[in-house]
Amino acid sequence: MSEVLAAKPKGHIEVKNFSLAYETIEGPVQAVTDTQIHVNPGEFVSIVGPSGCGKSTLLNAVAGFLKPTTGIVTVDGERVNGPSAERGMVFQQYSLFPWKTVRENVEFGLKMRGMPRSQRERAARTLLGLAGLEAFEKHYPERLSGGMKQRVGIVRALATGPKVLLLDEPFGALDAQTRVIMQQILTNMWQRLKISVLFVTHDIDEAIFLSDRVYCMTARPGSIKAEIPIPLERPRQQSMMMSSEFLALRRGLMSLIREESLKAMGGEINDLGMQGLSIELQGHSLADVI
């Protein structure tokens, strides 16, 4: 537990001159180009951007699942070359092991590290308690609601005491109410554990509410369009989402994203060869038309 609740912030993520192209039959698909991002130790940073702009690609590269085509990813100065328990990840799809109970899922990382059974059981119980899940420790994931599954997923990723936590639209499949609760729980855990978080979402409110800083990406090939600091004070309350400060940030981000989404869609529409639309578009931007 001492590691898990360590007080010193850690996990300085640095992504430099990053680009990544997928090899396909039709040739390389440039998913992300010329991207620099960083996450300071203990910072909560979000990435927003239109669908298909390469958010997951970027995150998977930080996790070590993908190799950058150019550039370098480091965490605390060490080059990332492969997944490791230092970088915990929560996936958009539910990714609990169906054959393990909730507690066994949480214990998994500790088991891989060779921690003796009784010790890791105790650690898992404590962590599940923090997330309000102790009553479900013996359940199999199948019997949990979506929100609970993602909570267990977060707890599992945190159990090994990673330096950074990577989340790829973890709440995408949840309803609005559950999302809000999950955001609160995530914030609590982050503040307690003082680790760095890199959070991918396409929900602007979520990004602003959670983050210290938000990166906004351009349409594919993705690169960083803007970097927006979120100066809202903490602890943040749900009521803040009505404040003028919040709404101003929201408006700003919204227009950035909208521009990019339209660009992305415009591209697709032209790709599809929808002649009528593209003729109409001559002389106008798509934004004017819609």
Binding site: A63, G64, F65, A85, R156, T160
Partner: peptide
Amino acid sequence: VLVRAAQCLGA
């Protein structure tokens, strides 16, 4: 995804 999850838990 389960394989990836295991990998980034140190398996």
